[in-house]
Design a protein around this nucleic acid. Sequence first.
DNA 1: GGACGCCTCCAACTTTCGAGGGATCGACGA
DNA 2: TCGTCGATCCCTCGAAAGTTGGAGGCGTCC
Lengths: 234, 234
Amino acid sequence: MSTATSAGDAGHMIRVLIADDQAIVRGGFRVLLESEPDIEIVGEAEDGMQAVALARRRDADVVLMDVRMPRMDGLEATRALAGPDVPPAERIDVLVVTTFDLDEYVFGALRAGAAGFLLKDAQPEVLVEALRAVAGGKGLVDPEVTRRLIARFAEIAPDPERGRALEMLSERERAVLLQLATGRSNAEIAASLHVEESTVKSHVSAVLAKLGLRSRVQAVILAYESGLVTPGGR
Amino acid sequence: MSTATSAGDAGHMIRVLIADDQAIVRGGFRVLLESEPDIEIVGEAEDGMQAVALARRRDADVVLMDVRMPRMDGLEATRALAGPDVPPAERIDVLVVTTFDLDEYVFGALRAGAAGFLLKDAQPEVLVEALRAVAGGKGLVDPEVTRRLIARFAEIAPDPERGRALEMLSERERAVLLQLATGRSNAEIAASLHVEESTVKSHVSAVLAKLGLRSRVQAVILAYESGLVTPGGR
DNA sequence: GGACGCCTCCAACTTTCGAGGGATCGACGA
DNA sequence: TCGTCGATCCCTCGAAAGTTGGAGGCGTCC
């Protein structure tokens, strides 16, 4: 929350690395960006490996990342620079720019930690604007793909309303439900919680009774539907 | 895919309805938009009820929707105009514009079917641009909130990689897994699939064996984690 | 024609669940 | 102080869930 020192600051240049396997494309980006007073191109990479290494060595603020690249693709490289496994202090923002408007790329890039996603046919001003937004701690998704992103989001987003029911559970019962949702048996939950299996059974029964369910499977489903646990559960 | 007749077309005006409970705000939007040659304000509403009714009666292309409103809030109104329960032909695009940058509003609006989400402190040009984008079948989310949208998306998006395992299942086995993920018992699945319970047990055992799992609960978890089923499961 | 995978079913068996009783203890509020 | 609630444990018992080892039919591929 405090890292972004307002990118457009006078005197503070946005250090950009361009990663694309085609020299022509890199050149295009370069001429486009070099005319901007607040943007500085600190390097070019022609594959994902180079992109990750150079971004770190040159201390880039933002990496302009293509998806299709040899050796390591843009999504993997994004994961290495901005993914959930990277310590927050070491993260480098990534703006993914690709020719291909594929869900696989869009959702993949965003899951990988990209802060922005643009199509290469976007207006040059949009690219620059997106770069500034990303460097400023904001995000930007091409309007062309935003609709699909929203649709997908609506599809997979849990309903917080359904989570209201979970409020009637005691703390311990919620803990047990959390364990249930990992697929553990009563015996395993007991071991993990350092209590007897009989106790776990009591809790499970209480959970089912309070939520009006008939089996642990239904409890797990509710845990997912309500957002108590998420597929990417970290 | 074919509806969007390129909003900025000469001769084709974007019919906009403004929904906000504060007259001053409506007035602000009005003067801002009336100077645009391709935008036509077809009405104003001061609550959600009015917004929905007027949008339909005036055949609006886009509704500029505030969130906090009396009688029916903007999220509910959005659901009524663009929600998943509305037949595609009757849907009216909604651009949610609010003062408050709350996750509840952002995610709520997008889940409700909004095509765009802006904060009221956005630049006027951005608002106009967003309006055109939405009318053109595109989407737009304020860069200020896009980061959080992406982060949330990454958190809840299933990993398609984990779905690869499901490919080794037979069609019938996948059908059984789908039923499992609704919380049905073996007996209920049997009834629903018009087979004997013993058959269902065979299939369930096969599913568990193929996926290397030990209980139906784990199978259901995999179904969610892989995206075979989603919380918003329609 | 045989091998193979899938779907359907069966029976017998073990293990796990989950419900239905209790019980004790401590905390907290009326 | 009493009542309530949560957490912990106990036991019983019936009902699910899963395993194992079949079997027959059906289609495909070689």
